[in-house]
Structures are given as C-alpha cells and as structure tokens.
C-alpha cells in the first residue's frame, strides 16, 4: 500500500497542472450560484430584455427553496455529469495509449493502489466540487428564497454524494477496461442515458442507483419512502465497490495493451 501515496502524488500533480483541480469545482460553483440567481431574477430579466407585446403577463409559480436546490442538481445532472464523464474517461486509457503508463507498469506497483490513487483524485475534485457548489447554492437560496431544513439538506447532500460515487466508479471502470473513446461513450450511456431510461420506464421499479438524485430531492422535501431508498443506496454502494474492484482487475489485465 506504500505505493499508493506516490501514485496519488503523481495524480494530484497532474490534475493541478492541467487545471482540473480548479476548473471542475468552479463549474459546479458557477451553476450552484447562477441557478438561484437566475430563478429569482428571471421575471425582471425577461421584462428588461423587452420586445414583449404590451400587456403580456408572465405567470411565475412561487418557487420553494427546495425546488431551487433541485434545479441546481438538475443542472449538475446534465452539464456536470458531462464534464465528469468526458473529463475523466481517459484517466487510465489515455496513459496506456500514449505509452506513459509503460514506465509505471514495469515497476512493482499494485494495480489496486494505482486505481485507488485515481479514484481518490476524482472523489476530491468531483465530490469536493459538488459540495462547494451545493453549499454556495444553499447560501444563495437562503438569501433569495428562504431557509431549508438543515437535517433534510444533509440527507439530500449525502444521497447525491452516493450517486456521484457511482458515477465516478462507472467512469473509472470504463477507462480501465476500454480505450478513451469507448470509455467516454460507455460512461455517457450509463450515466446520462440510463437516467432517461430509468425516468421513462422506471415506474415499474423503485430500487435503482439512477433514482438516487430523485430520492435526494424527495428527502429534501421531507416525503420519501424509506425502504426503496435504503435498498437503492445499498445497491449503489455495492455496485460502486464492484466497479472499482473491476477497474483494478482490468487495469492489470490491460497492461499488455499499453504502448511499448
């Protein structure tokens, strides 16, 4: 396990020097702030943009603070998840393709340390970035729309973090198993498209990792069904562990695919 810290140091340096450590959290922060702001000022913005026929009346529903936080999450679910999947799909595959991985693989490293060093960096950037973004969103929501129940908020945040761990595991596994191009596609399909499918057909089942963002919202609103939620969390955590272990397995198996 001692190799882990050296590998992590390398991952950290890489993500500092390619600015991922900065720009990905900033994207989450940006959407976290802009969501409550635009929702609050939308009527005024539309009015000032003008060109509306005289006498047009906009009906804006009264938005609750919980709805604003959920609308932040739905931004993360689209743009945020695209950033995570496409931004990290090459985290292992690209090293193999360029040949830089060869000089790591000839050393007595453990492939689980190797994968875990990448996992920890992704967790730090993605989950760290989302926490910062949602806290900022909470602050703005609090000013503009009012307070939310703090216990419910932490339940909501924790549930969403479990979902993010699942996303990270999918991306890491894909990158270990496939080339960067295929890993991007697989990640986008299993993170973004699977959500749509789950939303369309998902009335038939209640236990699914892809339902976690929805459950997070329900927790925030204070009305949720405990049993399917707990099962979904369990399934998600187990799936994540399996995917991470699978990433280690495939990272080792694909050593021979590294360019020599």
């Amino acid at each position: 396990m001692s190799n882990f810290s050296f590998l992590f140091q390398k991952e950290w340096r890489e993500n500092v020097r390619n600015f991922k450590i900065l720009w990905i959290p900033l994207v989450f922060l940006l959407f976290g702030i802009s969501e409550p702001l635009t929702n609050y000022y939308l009527p005024q913005i539309l009015a000032s943009v003008g060109n509306m026929p005289e006498g047009t009346v906009f009906q804006f529903p009264e938005l609750s603070p919980e709805q604003i936080l959920m609308s932040t999450i739905s931004q993360y679910q689209l743009i945020g998840m695209l950033v995570v999947t496409l931004g990290f799909a090459g985290i292992i595959a690209r090293e193999r393709k360029s040949g830089t991985a060869t000089l790591l693989y000839v050393r007595p490293i453990s492939y689980f340390s190797y994968v875990n060093s990448k996992l920890l960096v992704m967790i730090t950037i993605v989950i760290g970035g989302v926490i910062v973004g949602i806290l900022a969103s909470l602050y703005y929501t609090n000013i503009l729309f009012g307070a939310v129940d703090i216990g419910a908020f932490f339940g909501f945040l924790g549930t969403y973090i479990a979902w993010l761990l699942f996303v990270i595991s999918i991306v890491l596994f894909s990158s270990a198993a496939f080339t960067t191009g295929i890993a991007s596609t697989v990640s986008v399909v299993f993170v973004l498209f699977a959500q749509i499918i789950d939303a369309l057909l998902g009335t038939y089942w209640t236990i699914s990792p892809w339902k976690l963002p929805m459950y997070a919202g329900q927790i925030l609103n204070g009305n949720f069904d405990m049993t399917p939620f707990v099962w979904s969390i369990m399934i998600t955590l187990i799936a994540s562990i399996v995917l991470i272990a699978g990433a280690g397995y495939f990272a080792k198996r694909n050593v021979s695919k590294a360019k020599i």
Binding site: K10, L103, I260
Partner: peptide, 10 residues
C-alpha cells in the same frame, strides 16, 4: 522501451 514516453507535465 525503444521510445520511452514521459508525463510531459513533470
């Protein structure tokens, strides 16, 4: 290796 590749940012 014949064509060693390095992390360009190190």
């Amino acid at each position: 290796p014949q064509y060693p590749q390095f992390y360009t940012w190190l």
